[in-house]
Design a protein around this nucleic acid. Structure first.
Length: 419
RNA sequence: CGGGGCGUAGCGCAGCUCGGCUAGCGCGCUUGCUUUGGGAGCAAGAAGUCGAGAGUUCAAAUCUCUCCGCCCCGACCA
Protein backbone atom coordinates (compact mmCIF):
# COMPACT_ATOMS: atom_id res chain seq x y z
CA UNK A 1 0.00 0.00 0.00
CA UNK A 2 1.28 3.44 -0.91
CA UNK A 3 1.23 6.15 1.70
CA UNK A 4 0.06 8.80 -0.74
CA UNK A 5 -3.03 6.77 -1.61
CA UNK A 6 -3.97 5.57 1.85
CA UNK A 7 -5.35 8.80 3.32
CA UNK A 8 -3.19 9.31 6.40
CA UNK A 9 -3.80 12.91 7.43
CA UNK A 10 -1.07 13.37 10.04
CA UNK A 11 -0.95 16.50 12.15
CA UNK A 12 2.19 18.21 13.29
CA UNK A 13 0.60 20.04 16.16
CA UNK A 14 -1.48 18.86 19.09
CA UNK A 15 -5.16 19.38 18.29
CA UNK A 16 -6.99 21.90 20.46
CA UNK A 17 -9.27 20.59 23.17
CA UNK A 18 -7.52 17.29 23.70
CA UNK A 19 -6.27 16.09 27.03
CA UNK A 20 -5.52 12.39 26.80
CA UNK A 21 -2.26 11.38 25.12
CA UNK A 22 -4.09 8.61 23.28
CA UNK A 23 -6.65 11.09 21.99
CA UNK A 24 -3.91 13.40 20.74
CA UNK A 25 -1.92 10.65 19.10
CA UNK A 26 -4.92 8.98 17.47
CA UNK A 27 -5.85 12.31 15.91
CA UNK A 28 -2.29 13.30 14.99
CA UNK A 29 -1.48 9.93 13.44
CA UNK A 30 -4.63 10.13 11.35
CA UNK A 31 -6.45 7.12 12.84
CA UNK A 32 -9.65 8.82 13.86
CA UNK A 33 -11.44 12.09 13.23
CA UNK A 34 -14.10 13.77 15.34
CA UNK A 35 -17.38 14.63 13.66
CA UNK A 36 -19.03 16.03 16.77
CA UNK A 37 -18.60 15.48 20.49
CA UNK A 38 -18.34 11.76 21.19
CA UNK A 39 -18.72 10.75 17.54
CA UNK A 40 -15.69 9.62 15.56
CA UNK A 41 -14.79 8.46 12.06
CA UNK A 42 -12.29 5.64 11.78
CA UNK A 43 -9.86 6.55 9.03
CA UNK A 44 -8.10 3.83 7.01
CA UNK A 45 -5.23 3.42 9.46
CA UNK A 46 -7.56 3.34 12.46
CA UNK A 47 -9.87 0.89 10.75
CA UNK A 48 -6.99 -1.53 10.19
CA UNK A 49 -6.16 -1.49 13.90
CA UNK A 50 -9.82 -1.96 14.73
CA UNK A 51 -10.08 -4.95 12.41
CA UNK A 52 -7.00 -6.58 13.84
CA UNK A 53 -8.30 -6.22 17.37
CA UNK A 54 -11.67 -7.57 16.25
CA UNK A 55 -9.92 -10.57 14.77
CA UNK A 56 -8.13 -11.35 18.00
CA UNK A 57 -11.45 -11.15 19.80
CA UNK A 58 -13.15 -13.37 17.21
CA UNK A 59 -10.45 -16.00 17.43
CA UNK A 60 -10.61 -16.16 21.20
CA UNK A 61 -14.39 -16.05 21.37
CA UNK A 62 -14.73 -18.79 18.76
CA UNK A 63 -12.11 -20.87 20.55
CA UNK A 64 -14.19 -20.56 23.73
CA UNK A 65 -17.22 -21.91 21.93
CA UNK A 66 -19.09 -18.68 21.28
CA UNK A 67 -20.79 -18.12 17.92
CA UNK A 68 -20.92 -14.80 16.10
CA UNK A 69 -24.14 -13.18 14.90
CA UNK A 70 -25.25 -9.64 14.18
CA UNK A 71 -28.17 -8.00 15.93
CA UNK A 72 -30.11 -4.90 14.91
CA UNK A 73 -29.20 -1.46 16.19
CA UNK A 74 -32.72 -0.20 15.52
CA UNK A 75 -35.00 -1.41 18.28
CA UNK A 76 -38.60 -0.81 19.40
CA UNK A 77 -39.00 0.74 22.85
CA UNK A 78 -41.77 -1.74 23.52
CA UNK A 79 -39.15 -4.45 24.01
CA UNK A 80 -37.37 -2.33 26.60
CA UNK A 81 -40.58 -1.63 28.48
CA UNK A 82 -40.89 -5.33 29.18
CA UNK A 83 -37.72 -5.32 31.31
CA UNK A 84 -38.23 -1.81 32.64
CA UNK A 85 -34.94 -0.68 31.22
CA UNK A 86 -36.60 1.97 29.06
CA UNK A 87 -36.58 3.84 32.39
CA UNK A 88 -33.27 2.74 33.96
CA UNK A 89 -31.37 3.46 30.77
CA UNK A 90 -33.47 6.49 29.78
CA UNK A 91 -30.54 8.85 30.32
CA UNK A 92 -28.30 7.25 27.72
CA UNK A 93 -30.88 5.95 25.27
CA UNK A 94 -31.16 7.71 21.92
CA UNK A 95 -34.90 7.66 21.18
CA UNK A 96 -37.10 8.87 18.39
CA UNK A 97 -40.34 8.08 16.60
CA UNK A 98 -40.46 6.39 13.23
CA UNK A 99 -42.88 7.21 10.42
CA UNK A 100 -45.60 5.05 11.99
CA UNK A 101 -45.18 7.09 15.15
CA UNK A 102 -43.68 4.09 16.92
CA UNK A 103 -41.18 4.75 19.70
CA UNK A 104 -37.77 3.47 18.68
CA UNK A 105 -34.23 3.61 20.00
CA UNK A 106 -30.69 2.95 18.86
CA UNK A 107 -29.45 0.02 20.89
CA UNK A 108 -27.29 1.02 23.86
CA UNK A 109 -26.83 -2.72 24.56
CA UNK A 110 -28.52 -5.93 23.43
CA UNK A 111 -29.75 -8.09 26.31
CA UNK A 112 -33.40 -7.55 25.39
CA UNK A 113 -32.94 -8.24 21.69
CA UNK A 114 -30.90 -11.39 22.16
CA UNK A 115 -33.15 -12.78 24.87
CA UNK A 116 -36.19 -12.20 22.69
CA UNK A 117 -34.41 -13.94 19.83
CA UNK A 118 -33.29 -16.95 21.83
CA UNK A 119 -36.69 -17.26 23.45
CA UNK A 120 -38.25 -18.06 20.11
CA UNK A 121 -35.64 -20.65 19.27
CA UNK A 122 -34.82 -22.51 22.47
CA UNK A 123 -37.52 -24.73 23.95
CA UNK A 124 -35.55 -27.65 25.36
CA UNK A 125 -32.64 -28.21 27.71
CA UNK A 126 -31.17 -30.18 24.81
CA UNK A 127 -30.53 -26.88 23.00
CA UNK A 128 -28.47 -25.50 25.88
CA UNK A 129 -25.92 -24.21 26.53
CA UNK A 130 -25.32 -21.66 23.79
CA UNK A 131 -23.19 -18.57 23.68
CA UNK A 132 -23.80 -15.91 21.04
CA UNK A 133 -21.79 -12.77 20.42
CA UNK A 134 -21.55 -9.84 18.08
CA UNK A 135 -19.21 -6.96 17.33
CA UNK A 136 -21.55 -4.06 16.90
CA UNK A 137 -21.90 -0.31 17.21
CA UNK A 138 -23.62 0.83 20.39
CA UNK A 139 -25.29 4.19 20.87
CA UNK A 140 -25.26 5.88 24.23
CA UNK A 141 -26.10 9.52 24.67
CA UNK A 142 -23.37 9.93 27.25
CA UNK A 143 -23.79 12.68 29.76
CA UNK A 144 -20.21 13.61 29.10
CA UNK A 145 -18.20 12.11 26.27
CA UNK A 146 -14.55 12.14 27.20
CA UNK A 147 -10.99 11.48 26.08
CA UNK A 148 -11.91 11.00 22.45
CA UNK A 149 -12.61 7.40 21.71
CA UNK A 150 -12.42 6.32 25.37
CA UNK A 151 -15.95 7.44 26.10
CA UNK A 152 -17.91 8.02 22.94
CA UNK A 153 -21.62 8.23 22.18
CA UNK A 154 -21.19 5.85 19.28
CA UNK A 155 -18.70 3.09 19.93
CA UNK A 156 -17.89 -0.47 19.02
CA UNK A 157 -18.44 -3.23 21.50
CA UNK A 158 -18.12 -6.97 21.51
CA UNK A 159 -21.02 -8.32 23.48
CA UNK A 160 -21.58 -12.00 24.19
CA UNK A 161 -24.54 -13.67 25.86
CA UNK A 162 -24.54 -17.14 27.37
CA UNK A 163 -27.64 -19.25 27.90
CA UNK A 164 -27.55 -22.18 30.31
CA UNK A 165 -30.08 -24.43 31.96
CA UNK A 166 -28.78 -23.90 35.47
CA UNK A 167 -26.37 -22.01 37.64
CA UNK A 168 -23.68 -24.66 37.29
CA UNK A 169 -23.80 -24.25 33.55
CA UNK A 170 -23.59 -20.48 33.86
CA UNK A 171 -20.49 -20.80 36.01
CA UNK A 172 -18.81 -22.88 33.30
CA UNK A 173 -19.78 -20.45 30.56
CA UNK A 174 -18.60 -17.57 32.72
CA UNK A 175 -15.28 -19.24 33.37
CA UNK A 176 -14.75 -19.80 29.65
CA UNK A 177 -15.38 -16.13 28.93
CA UNK A 178 -13.17 -15.06 31.81
CA UNK A 179 -10.29 -17.06 30.34
CA UNK A 180 -11.01 -15.82 26.82
CA UNK A 181 -10.84 -12.26 28.10
CA UNK A 182 -7.47 -12.88 29.68
CA UNK A 183 -6.22 -14.25 26.36
CA UNK A 184 -7.62 -11.35 24.36
CA UNK A 185 -6.02 -8.67 26.53
CA UNK A 186 -2.75 -10.53 26.66
CA UNK A 187 -2.61 -10.67 22.87
CA UNK A 188 -3.25 -6.90 22.81
CA UNK A 189 -0.25 -6.53 25.15
CA UNK A 190 -2.42 -5.20 27.95
CA UNK A 191 -2.14 -6.38 31.52
CA UNK A 192 -5.51 -5.73 33.08
CA UNK A 193 -6.32 -5.91 36.74
CA UNK A 194 -9.48 -7.86 37.42
CA UNK A 195 -11.83 -6.86 40.18
CA UNK A 196 -15.16 -8.02 41.46
CA UNK A 197 -17.59 -5.30 40.68
CA UNK A 198 -21.03 -3.88 40.91
CA UNK A 199 -23.48 -5.20 38.40
CA UNK A 200 -25.09 -1.79 38.01
CA UNK A 201 -27.80 -1.42 35.41
CA UNK A 202 -27.08 -4.88 34.01
CA UNK A 203 -28.38 -6.65 37.09
CA UNK A 204 -27.37 -10.09 38.33
CA UNK A 205 -25.09 -11.44 41.01
CA UNK A 206 -21.43 -11.93 40.20
CA UNK A 207 -19.47 -9.65 37.90
CA UNK A 208 -15.84 -8.93 37.14
CA UNK A 209 -14.31 -5.87 35.57
CA UNK A 210 -11.12 -5.90 33.51
CA UNK A 211 -9.25 -2.62 33.83
CA UNK A 212 -5.86 -1.21 32.87
CA UNK A 213 -4.31 1.45 35.03
CA UNK A 214 -3.69 4.64 33.09
CA UNK A 215 -3.44 8.35 33.86
CA UNK A 216 -6.73 9.09 32.10
CA UNK A 217 -8.63 6.36 33.88
CA UNK A 218 -12.20 7.11 34.83
CA UNK A 219 -12.34 4.49 37.57
CA UNK A 220 -10.41 4.34 40.79
CA UNK A 221 -8.98 1.09 42.06
CA UNK A 222 -6.69 0.11 44.88
CA UNK A 223 -4.06 -2.46 44.07
CA UNK A 224 -1.05 -4.22 45.47
CA UNK A 225 2.23 -3.52 43.64
CA UNK A 226 3.65 -6.87 44.80
CA UNK A 227 1.04 -9.51 44.02
CA UNK A 228 -1.35 -7.65 41.75
CA UNK A 229 -4.35 -7.90 44.07
CA UNK A 230 -6.91 -5.30 43.03
CA UNK A 231 -10.20 -4.04 44.30
CA UNK A 232 -12.47 -1.05 44.21
CA UNK A 233 -11.91 1.32 47.09
CA UNK A 234 -14.71 0.27 49.44
CA UNK A 235 -15.56 -0.15 53.07
CA UNK A 236 -12.70 -2.59 53.72
CA UNK A 237 -10.15 -1.60 51.07
CA UNK A 238 -8.13 1.57 51.39
CA UNK A 239 -4.90 2.90 49.97
CA UNK A 240 -2.12 2.49 52.50
CA UNK A 241 -3.67 -0.66 53.91
CA UNK A 242 -1.58 -3.88 53.97
CA UNK A 243 -2.44 -6.08 51.01
CA UNK A 244 -5.08 -8.57 52.21
CA UNK A 245 -3.74 -11.20 49.81
CA UNK A 246 0.04 -11.26 50.20
CA UNK A 247 0.54 -8.86 53.14
CA UNK A 248 3.88 -7.80 51.63
CA UNK A 249 3.05 -4.36 50.32
CA UNK A 250 0.59 -1.58 50.91
CA UNK A 251 -2.34 -0.91 48.62
CA UNK A 252 -1.97 1.96 46.18
CA UNK A 253 -4.69 4.01 44.59
CA UNK A 254 -4.68 4.17 40.78
CA UNK A 255 -6.97 5.39 38.06
CA UNK A 256 -7.96 2.83 35.47
CA UNK A 257 -9.83 2.39 32.20
CA UNK A 258 -12.50 -0.28 32.11
CA UNK A 259 -11.95 -2.48 29.07
CA UNK A 260 -14.30 -5.35 29.71
CA UNK A 261 -16.96 -6.50 32.07
CA UNK A 262 -18.44 -9.97 32.55
CA UNK A 263 -21.72 -10.56 34.37
CA UNK A 264 -23.58 -13.55 35.72
CA UNK A 265 -27.00 -12.18 34.98
CA UNK A 266 -29.06 -15.08 36.23
CA UNK A 267 -32.76 -14.87 35.47
CA UNK A 268 -33.31 -11.15 35.16
CA UNK A 269 -33.91 -10.99 31.42
CA UNK A 270 -35.18 -14.48 30.81
CA UNK A 271 -37.93 -14.17 33.40
CA UNK A 272 -38.89 -10.64 32.36
CA UNK A 273 -39.16 -11.68 28.73
CA UNK A 274 -40.39 -15.23 29.31
CA UNK A 275 -37.38 -17.01 27.85
CA UNK A 276 -38.01 -20.50 29.25
CA UNK A 277 -37.10 -24.08 28.40
CA UNK A 278 -38.38 -27.51 29.36
CA UNK A 279 -36.03 -29.53 31.54
CA UNK A 280 -35.57 -33.31 31.63
CA UNK A 281 -38.73 -33.71 33.68
CA UNK A 282 -40.81 -31.60 31.35
CA UNK A 283 -40.88 -28.66 33.73
CA UNK A 284 -40.69 -25.11 32.41
CA UNK A 285 -37.75 -23.10 33.72
CA UNK A 286 -36.20 -19.72 32.88
CA UNK A 287 -32.90 -19.79 31.02
CA UNK A 288 -29.89 -18.77 33.11
CA UNK A 289 -27.95 -16.00 31.40
CA UNK A 290 -24.59 -14.31 31.44
CA UNK A 291 -23.33 -11.35 29.42
CA UNK A 292 -19.80 -10.35 28.51
CA UNK A 293 -18.71 -7.01 27.04
CA UNK A 294 -15.49 -5.58 25.67
CA UNK A 295 -15.11 -1.97 24.54
CA UNK A 296 -13.42 -2.70 21.23
CA UNK A 297 -12.91 0.88 20.12
CA UNK A 298 -11.86 1.82 23.63
CA UNK A 299 -9.18 -0.88 23.45
CA UNK A 300 -7.47 1.10 20.70
CA UNK A 301 -7.18 4.10 22.99
CA UNK A 302 -6.01 1.96 25.90
CA UNK A 303 -3.32 0.33 23.77
CA UNK A 304 -2.04 3.72 22.62
CA UNK A 305 -2.18 5.01 26.18
CA UNK A 306 0.13 2.15 27.21
CA UNK A 307 2.32 2.10 24.07
CA UNK A 308 3.77 5.44 23.05
CA UNK A 309 6.74 7.75 23.49
CA UNK A 310 7.32 11.46 22.92
CA UNK A 311 7.39 10.93 19.15
CA UNK A 312 4.29 8.89 18.69
CA UNK A 313 2.55 5.55 18.87
CA UNK A 314 4.41 2.25 19.26
CA UNK A 315 2.01 -0.46 18.12
CA UNK A 316 2.25 -3.94 19.59
CA UNK A 317 2.93 -6.22 16.60
CA UNK A 318 -0.35 -8.08 16.72
CA UNK A 319 -2.58 -5.00 16.44
CA UNK A 320 -0.36 -2.77 14.28
CA UNK A 321 -2.07 -1.37 11.17
CA UNK A 322 0.89 -2.55 9.08
CA UNK A 323 3.74 -4.90 9.92
CA UNK A 324 6.43 -3.03 8.03
CA UNK A 325 6.86 0.45 6.63
CA UNK A 326 9.27 0.98 3.76
CA UNK A 327 10.70 4.49 3.56
CA UNK A 328 12.04 5.52 0.21
CA UNK A 329 14.10 8.62 0.92
CA UNK A 330 14.87 9.46 -2.70
CA UNK A 331 11.78 8.78 -4.74
CA UNK A 332 13.37 10.08 -7.94
CA UNK A 333 15.92 7.23 -7.90
CA UNK A 334 14.36 4.48 -10.04
CA UNK A 335 16.66 1.90 -8.43
CA UNK A 336 15.25 2.62 -4.99
CA UNK A 337 11.65 2.57 -6.12
CA UNK A 338 12.20 -0.71 -7.94
CA UNK A 339 13.78 -2.20 -4.84
CA UNK A 340 10.94 -0.90 -2.69
CA UNK A 341 8.41 -2.61 -4.95
CA UNK A 342 10.32 -5.88 -4.84
CA UNK A 343 10.50 -5.77 -1.07
CA UNK A 344 6.83 -4.91 -0.83
CA UNK A 345 5.80 -7.80 -3.06
CA UNK A 346 8.01 -10.37 -1.40
CA UNK A 347 6.99 -9.37 2.11
CA UNK A 348 3.32 -9.36 1.12
CA UNK A 349 3.81 -12.85 -0.29
CA UNK A 350 4.93 -13.87 3.17
CA UNK A 351 1.72 -12.55 4.60
CA UNK A 352 2.99 -9.23 5.90
CA UNK A 353 1.11 -5.97 5.56
CA UNK A 354 3.44 -3.38 4.05
CA UNK A 355 3.12 0.38 3.83
CA UNK A 356 5.41 2.19 1.39
CA UNK A 357 6.13 5.86 2.03
CA UNK A 358 6.73 6.92 -1.56
CA UNK A 359 5.86 10.57 -1.05
CA UNK A 360 8.13 13.23 -2.45
CA UNK A 361 8.87 14.59 1.01
CA UNK A 362 12.08 15.35 2.86
CA UNK A 363 13.64 12.59 4.93
CA UNK A 364 12.79 14.37 8.16
CA UNK A 365 9.08 14.49 7.37
CA UNK A 366 9.05 10.78 6.61
CA UNK A 367 10.98 9.81 9.73
CA UNK A 368 8.73 11.88 11.93
CA UNK A 369 5.54 10.58 10.37
CA UNK A 370 6.86 7.03 10.69
CA UNK A 371 7.56 7.59 14.38
CA UNK A 372 4.11 9.09 14.80
CA UNK A 373 2.08 6.27 13.22
CA UNK A 374 4.24 3.68 14.95
CA UNK A 375 4.56 0.73 12.57
CA UNK A 376 6.73 -1.82 14.45
CA UNK A 377 9.45 -2.13 11.81
CA UNK A 378 10.84 0.29 9.28
CA UNK A 379 12.99 -0.43 6.26
CA UNK A 380 14.89 2.59 4.99
CA UNK A 381 16.08 2.88 1.41
CA UNK A 382 18.39 5.86 0.95
CA UNK A 383 21.83 6.92 -0.15
CA UNK A 384 23.47 4.04 1.70
CA UNK A 385 21.38 1.70 -0.38
CA UNK A 386 22.85 3.24 -3.52
CA UNK A 387 26.45 3.55 -2.31
CA UNK A 388 26.90 0.48 -0.07
CA UNK A 389 24.06 -1.77 -1.26
CA UNK A 390 22.60 -1.88 2.23
CA UNK A 391 19.21 -1.15 3.74
CA UNK A 392 18.51 -0.15 7.30
CA UNK A 393 15.96 -1.99 9.42
CA UNK A 394 14.78 -0.14 12.50
CA UNK A 395 12.71 -1.37 15.40
CA UNK A 396 10.25 1.34 16.44
CA UNK A 397 10.03 0.17 20.04
CA UNK A 398 13.68 -0.50 20.88
CA UNK A 399 15.20 1.89 18.37
CA UNK A 400 17.60 -0.89 17.41
CA UNK A 401 19.01 -0.48 13.94
CA UNK A 402 20.64 -3.03 11.69
CA UNK A 403 22.29 -2.49 8.35
CA UNK A 404 21.81 -5.44 6.05
CA UNK A 405 22.90 -6.09 2.47
CA UNK A 406 20.22 -5.49 -0.13
CA UNK A 407 20.48 -9.14 -1.14
CA UNK A 408 19.28 -10.33 2.25
CA UNK A 409 16.85 -7.49 2.98
CA UNK A 410 13.72 -9.59 2.49
CA UNK A 411 14.92 -12.43 4.69
CA UNK A 412 16.14 -10.13 7.44
CA UNK A 413 12.98 -8.04 7.48
CA UNK A 414 10.75 -11.08 7.61
CA UNK A 415 12.92 -12.42 10.40
CA UNK A 416 12.60 -9.20 12.43
CA UNK A 417 8.83 -9.05 12.05
CA UNK A 418 8.44 -12.72 12.78
CA UNK A 419 10.42 -12.69 15.98
C1' C B 1 -27.56 19.36 34.31
C1' G B 2 -24.00 22.39 37.85
C1' G B 3 -18.85 24.82 37.79
C1' G B 4 -14.62 26.61 34.61
C1' G B 5 -12.42 27.62 29.72
C1' C B 6 -12.64 28.26 24.48
C1' G B 7 -14.68 29.39 19.17
C1' U B 8 -10.60 34.23 13.86
C1' A B 9 -8.13 30.12 6.48
C1' G B 10 -7.29 22.78 6.38
C1' C B 11 -4.19 22.84 11.38
C1' G B 12 -1.97 25.89 15.48
C1' C B 13 -2.41 30.95 16.99
C1' A B 14 -2.18 36.81 17.45
C1' G B 15 -5.57 40.91 17.26
C1' C B 16 -10.60 41.99 21.43
C1' U B 17 -8.97 45.15 27.53
C1' C B 18 -9.32 50.90 25.04
C1' G B 19 -14.37 49.87 18.19
C1' G B 20 -11.33 52.92 12.99
C1' C B 21 -7.96 52.06 6.35
C1' U B 22 -7.77 46.14 2.33
C1' A B 23 -8.11 41.10 9.42
C1' G B 24 -2.59 39.26 10.44
C1' C B 25 1.36 35.28 11.70
C1' G B 26 3.44 30.08 11.60
C1' C B 27 2.51 25.31 9.41
C1' G B 28 0.06 23.17 5.35
C1' C B 29 -1.69 23.98 0.03
C1' U B 30 -0.62 25.72 -5.61
C1' U B 31 3.40 27.09 -9.45
C1' G B 32 8.69 27.48 -10.66
C1' C B 33 13.88 26.64 -9.55
C1' U B 34 17.28 24.59 -6.05
C1' U B 35 17.09 20.67 -2.25
C1' U B 36 16.43 15.27 -0.05
C1' G B 37 19.48 10.18 6.35
C1' G B 38 15.53 13.65 11.18
C1' G B 39 9.67 18.26 10.13
C1' A B 40 14.58 22.22 3.54
C1' G B 41 15.62 27.34 0.77
C1' C B 42 14.18 31.34 -2.50
C1' A B 43 10.33 33.60 -5.42
C1' A B 44 5.30 34.15 -6.85
C1' G B 45 0.25 32.79 -5.48
C1' A B 46 -4.72 30.71 -3.72
C1' A B 47 -7.60 30.25 0.46
C1' G B 48 -11.77 33.86 5.78
C1' U B 49 -20.03 33.85 6.52
C1' C B 50 -13.84 36.48 12.48
C1' G B 51 -19.35 30.08 15.54
C1' A B 52 -24.83 32.08 14.40
C1' G B 53 -28.58 35.82 15.00
C1' A B 54 -30.13 40.40 16.89
C1' G B 55 -28.72 45.13 19.00
C1' U B 56 -25.59 49.78 20.02
C1' U B 57 -22.66 52.99 16.60
C1' C B 58 -20.94 57.18 11.20
C1' A B 59 -18.05 52.55 11.89
C1' A B 60 -18.05 45.91 15.29
C1' A B 61 -13.44 40.21 15.13
C1' U B 62 -13.47 44.04 19.16
C1' C B 63 -19.10 46.59 23.09
C1' U B 64 -24.38 44.36 24.70
C1' C B 65 -28.07 40.33 24.53
C1' U B 66 -29.70 35.53 22.88
C1' C B 67 -28.57 30.99 20.77
C1' C B 68 -25.18 27.07 18.93
C1' G B 69 -20.74 24.20 19.18
C1' C B 70 -16.15 22.21 21.51
C1' C B 71 -12.88 20.98 25.81
C1' C B 72 -11.90 20.30 31.17
C1' C B 73 -13.90 19.12 36.53
C1' G B 74 -18.49 16.18 38.98
C1' A B 75 -23.04 11.97 38.69
C1' C B 76 -22.96 7.28 34.29
C1' C B 77 -20.43 3.18 31.80
C1' A B 78 -17.44 -0.80 27.71
Amino acid sequence: MDWSKFFIPTLKEIPIGTEAVSHQLLLRAGLVHMLTSGVYSYLPLGLRVLKRIENIIREEMNAAGAVELFLPVLQPIELWQRTGRDKTLAEVMIRFKDKKNRDMCLGPTHEEVITDLVKGFVQSYRQLPINLYQIQTKFRDEIRPRFGIVRACEFIMKDAYSFDKDKEGLKKSYELMYQAYKNIFKRCRLSPVIIEADSGAMGGDVSHEFLVTAPIGEDEVVLCPACGFASVEGDSRHPGQKCPQCAKEFLEKKTAIELGHVFQLGLKYSSALGANYLDEKGQEKPIVMGCYGIGVSRLIAAIVEMNHDAKGIIWPAEVAPFDVEILVLKTDEPQLMTLARQLEQELARRGLAVLVDERDESAGVKFNDADLIGIPFRVILGKKTLSDKTVEIKNRRSGAVQLVPVASAIEKTAECVGS
